[in-house]
Design a protein around this nucleic acid. Structure first.
Lengths: 150, 150
DNA sequence: CAATAATGATTCACAATATGAATGATTCAA
DNA sequence: TTGAATCATTCATATTGTGAATCATTATTG
């Protein structure tokens, strides 16, 4: 006889990645909380670091969130001294966000925390499988809409 | 020279799985919405199907949510005729949830939807990498707390 | 056995998160 | 130059989740 119960739903990649993603994000959130950050703050820092200064509208678009949400994220990071927020002289409607040295340092801390989680995640994982996982993620991350860590 | 920018934060598994998980869960949520379900409803159906009837406290524990949240989930599924909710005769404090035939059918629909997402996800993925991905997920899914799809 | 503690389900008040509509400033197009 | 579009911001609102309080029931224990 074949297998009786094929682990309905929970056997799918969609379900497993969904659950694991939430678990990891919650853990990441707990570990960056002492820095005064939430995952979306870290996502914004990373965006600015990797893609350079951006207006709030551009950042919101890139992160897949409403522009109104970005106001609060930028407020917070500005309070922490992690970014500057200046009117674009060429178009004074735009608020241009740019990382400060403090922001870069903060991002590095987030990065270290994420890497520590990676270490735990891949602890009992065949190195070849870990490499394949990275390839698979790269292939899947071009998937449909973009949205940054919540 | 070595690579200048190592994709700060966004290069980590933690970040990538977090983002992908949210993206996938949002997509899954959109596709099961016509069934009148949200991801947590589907998670509860799957729990009952895969592990048998459970009290609400047990289900909440297994899903990693507050018992008070489970009340509403069970209400909804009961309204849809997807589960029965009966006092345990042996301990009349416990409400025991059990799948109905309609609930099983509903879960099968969710399963099909998740499988369709899997198909898209793995479309341009080396089959060997897809297999490795499954192994990696299996290894990582024993990770810390449990929480079901949100 | 009686009194007290613990457990399960439920309701409720509340916090956190996100959205979209409205507003005001500015820029673009006709 | 007038009207439409864009950007940032605020505000009202929806959604989601939690924990405290309550009530019924069951366990404990003096």
């Amino acid at each position: 006889m074949s297998k009786q119960s094929p682990a309905e739903l929970t056997g799918t990649l969609a379900f497993q990645i969904g659950v694991l993603g939430t678990t990891i994000t919650d853990l990441f959130a707990a570990r960056i909380a002492p820095l005064g950050l939430k995952p979306k703050h870290a996502g914004l820092l990373a965006l600015l670091a990797n893609q350079g200064a951006r207006s709030q509208a551009e950042a919101a678009e890139a992160m897949g969130v409403a522009p109104s949400l970005l106001v609060g994220l930028a407020d917070r990071l500005q309070d922490l001294g992690a970014l500057t927020r200046e009117r674009d002289p060429g178009d004074r409607r735009r608020q241009v966000l740019a990382l400060t040295a403090d922001g870069t340092a903060l991002l590095k801390s987030c990065n270290r925390i994420a890497e520590a989680i990676d270490t735990d995640l891949t602890a009992d994982l065949d190195p070849a499988d870990a490499a394949a996982l990275r390839r698979a993620l790269a292939a899947m991350t071009g998937f449909e809409p973009r949205r940054v860590l919540s």
